[in-house]
C-alpha cells in the first residue's frame, strides 16, 4: 500500500462514478466523490477501488478477499484503515473519515470549499423545470361509448 494512503474504499462495480444510472442518485456516492477529490487534491490520502476497474486490488488484499467470500458483494462498499475494517456495506461518515485521517472536525468541508470556485457553473434556475411530468387526460365527465 502506498505510504500516504490512509483510507481505502472498495466499491462494487459501477457504470459511472456518479451512480446516476440508478433509480435516484445516491447522495452518499456524490458526497464520497467530492470528499475524495477534495482531500486528495494536495496529497493522496484516500484510495477508491472499483470492482470493474481495479479488480486486482480486491484479490490482492487478503482481508477484502476473505470478507467478499464470506459475505458476497453485500459487504461493499467496504472501507479499511490499514487492516481494520471501518465500514461494511456503507460509506463512512465525514466524522469517521476525519478521525481515520487524523484531521480536525470540519476539515473535509473546508477542503471542498477551498477547491470550489465562488459561483457554481450550473444554476438550477437555468434548467427551467416544471413540477410534474405527467399530463393525464381522461374524460371523467360523460364520455360516450362507441
Amino acid at each position: 500500500m502506498d505510504q500516504t494512503i490512509k483510507l481505502e474504499i472498495y466499491e462494487p462495480a459501477m457504470c459511472c462514478a456518479s451512480g446516476v444510472c440508478g433509480p435516484s442518485v445516491d447522495p452518499e456516492l456524490l458526497r464520497i466523490s467530492s470528499i475524495v477529490h477534495a482531500r486528495n487534491h494536495n496529497h493522496t490520502q484516500i484510495a477508491r477501488y472499483n470492482l470493474k476497474d481495479h479488480p486486482m486490488r480486491f484479490v490482492q488484499n487478503p482481508l477484502v478477499q476473505k470478507l467478499l467470500k464470506e459475505k458476497g458483494v453485500a459487504v461493499l462498499p467496504l472501507t479499511l484503515v490499514g487492516n481494520t475494517v471501518l465500514t461494511e456495506g456503507s460509506y463512512p461518515t465525514n466524522a469517521q473519515i476525519e478521525e481515520a485521517l487524523g484531521l480536525q472536525s470540519g476539515q473535509l468541508k473546508s477542503d471542498i470549499q477551498s477547491i470550489r470556485p465562488q459561483k457554481p457553473k450550473v444554476k438550477l434556475s437555468d434548467l427551467k423545470v416544471q413540477p410534474g411530468n405527467l399530463k393525464q387526460k381522461s374524460l371523467d365527465q360523460g364520455g360516450t361509448r362507441d
Partner: peptide
C-alpha cells in the same frame, strides 16, 4: 429535466466544475 434537476441539486454544492461537467 426533472431527473437532472434532482441529481444536480444534490451535487451542486459539493462538486467541482470538472465533476459537474
Amino acid at each position: 429535466a426533472t431527473y437532472k434537476a434532482d441529481v444536480l441539486s444534490t451535487g451542486l454544492h459539493t462538486m467541482t466544475p470538472d465533476e459537474l461537467a
